[in-house]
Design a protein around this nucleic acid. Structure first.
Length: 487
RNA sequence: GGUCCCGUGGUAGAGUGGCUAUACAGAGCUCUGCAAAAGCUCGUACAUCGGUUCAAAUCCGGUCGGGACCUCCA
């Protein structure tokens, strides 16, 4: 099915046409591993997962998905510093080698990150690579040298900067974001470090070494420049190394449009001499909590682990987040999560019911409309990953095609589509209905109640039901048998 | 200061000129000893003011309110 995607480059939805249909290349800006990622980060990664799953399942493409791990920046350096309060015993013992310390610190949080996204149903096997920035220092150095050699970079006080004004004479700077370079607002936070730039619009490619910080030995025109990479350079270099330029889709949070992605493009154009780094640029909106921006000061700052501690099923969190459109602000609320639990469960029950119907349906009439499910739901996913509409289509179908009204073969058809759909949503189970393990005391009470009912002893029957409820179970009477369900 | 986005039913959230979104919650009915589950049915929403139009939640303008970004926050 033809996929349509919104690209920030055009501020519009466009048909997606890959450079090579057998190798759709996606680069996603991943986490900076300085701490446990919060659920806002998680939404971002789930949006990217949704994209690649839709491309595979609905588009029928083969996908090469790269997500970087940023393991060198101010925060990771600070956290790994000798004597850092953020150093945990699980990270091992600090050594005199600051680069080793950095690696131990970031490896710890990288592992946490991998566990978290796996918990949320993102499959590690779907990644082609998750490169760490510090493993690609050499290509970054080469790119920086090429940018300087091309006349778009300069050395100043031990650091290397990108010359935006020189770049703007040959290229457009501000393709993803309308930038008024001439009038950067006074008073907004400017790079905290006191580096010497020629112009406030310039950005750093390579930061000169500071005492006690990890560094690598760059040399330009015979001048040694020990230091470490700037923020933007890693994505330019790694995307080129692992995917080649241009590739198909670049993704990240809305906040990365500028400056990060804009600068990535500038670096690629200036140093690799390409016209485009990527053909489509997709940015997911932020998440807020109970209608407020998530922040530590408001006390509404959650990690995935915080929610799991409250005994929420990670698949419900996945379903809630994936069920909203990635380009709309997502209001994460506890009530909303509870609604998601119910909605997901309803589909799950439908799936179990279909399996039952397949085994024992007495209906023989074929309903041609069962074939509409795949078309209607997939069409919505193909339209810029419109999961809210896809789910609406699914529920509408379920309302019109109750499991008990289907023939065995129709149930099989529907079940097949749902299974395929689950390649995108990945929140439902297609195995047998899980057996309910009922504690003995509950079973005993249930048997007693069933006997009381047979004798039409309603008072005793109601008393026993209350007793069962008190143990956290609910008893439902059928015609010939009863079922027990945990409350 | 600049650039841009958004205000829809109890809640979340689609819809960009005329046709039931959908989900959760809620109400009624059927079924049931009573329930539960299930099935059926239901709500008549679109910040506000004005304009365009046969027709506006949808287009245009004003007002009010909220939000994002503007050099390392996904």
């Amino acid at each position: 099915m033809q996929i349509r995607l919104y690209t920030t480059m055009d501020r519009d939805v466009r048909e997606f046409h890959p450079i090579d249909p057998n190798d759709v290349r996606i680069y996603s800006c991943g986490p900076t591993v300085y701490d446990v990622a919060h659920i806002g980060n998680m939404r971002s990664f789930l949006s990217m997962d949704l994209l690649q799953r839709v491309l595979r399942t609905v588009g029928g493409y083969k996908v090469r998905w790269v997500m970087n791990i940023t393991d060198i920046d101010d925060k990771t350096i600070d956290g790994s510093r000798v004597g850092s309060a953020r150093w945990l015993p699980a990270m091992g013992t600090q050594t005199g080698d600051v680069r080793e310390n950095l690696r131990a610190f970031t490896t710890y949080y990288e592992d946490v990150f991998r566990q978290d996204i796996t918990t949320l149903g993102i499959q590690p096997s779907d990644f082609y690579a998750m490169p760490r920035a510090t493993d690609f220092i050499a290509p970054m150095m080469d790119l920086i040298k090429d940018i300087v050699a091309a006349g778009f970079g300069y050395v100043s006080d031990g650091s290397v900067y990108f010359n935006v004004n020189a770049y703007r004479k040959h290229y457009t700077y501000g393709r993803l974001f309308t930038i008024d370079v001439e009038h950067f607002r006074e008073g907004v936070r400017i790079d905290a470090d006191e580096y010497d730039r020629e112009s406030v619009s310039d950005f750093v490619l390579w930061k000169g070494r500071k005492e006690g910080e990890p560094s690598w030995d760059l040399e330009i025109d015979g001048v040694p420049l020990p230091g470490r990479p700037g923020w933007h350079i890693e994505c330019s270099a790694m995307s080129k190394e692992l995917l080649g330029l241009p590739f198909d889709i670049h993704t990240g949070g809305v906040d990365l449009r500028f400056p990060h992605h804009e600068d990535e493009i500038a670096q690629c154009c200036a140093g690799y001499h390409v016209q485009e780094q990527a053909n489509y640029w997709m940015h997911n909106e932020f998440l807020e909590i109970e209608g407020k921006k998530m922040s530590k000061s408001l006390g509404n700052f959650f990690t995935l682990r915080d929610l799991l501690d409250r005994e929420y099923d990670p698949l419900d969190i996945r379903f809630a987040m994936i069920g909203s459109h990635y380009r709309a602000l997502f209001n994460f609320t506890i009530d909303g999560l509870a609604a998601s639990v119910k909605a997901r469960e309803r589909v799950q029950d439908y799936i179990y019911d279909l399996a039952d119907v397949m085994a024992a349906s007495v209906i023989t009439e074929h309903r041609p409309s069962v074939h509409s499910l795949r078309t209607s739901v997939f069409a919505e996913l193909a339209d810029d990953l419109h999961t809210p509409k896809a789910l609406a289509a699914l529920f509408s179908f379920m309302n019109d095609h109750k499991a008990v009204t289907l023939s065995a073969s129709d149930a099989e058809i529907v079940l097949g589509v749902l299974q395929e759909l689950n390649n995108v949503f990945a929140v439902w189970s297609f195995g047998p209905r899980p057996a309910v393990v009922v504690p003995d005391d509950v079973t005993t009470l249930a048997e007693q109640r069933w006997a009381a009912r047979a004798e039409k002893n309603w008072a005793e029957s109601d008393r026993l039901r209350d007793a069962i409820n008190a143990l956290g179970w609910s008893m439902m009477d059928g015609k010939t048998s009863y079922t027990l369900e945990k409350l």
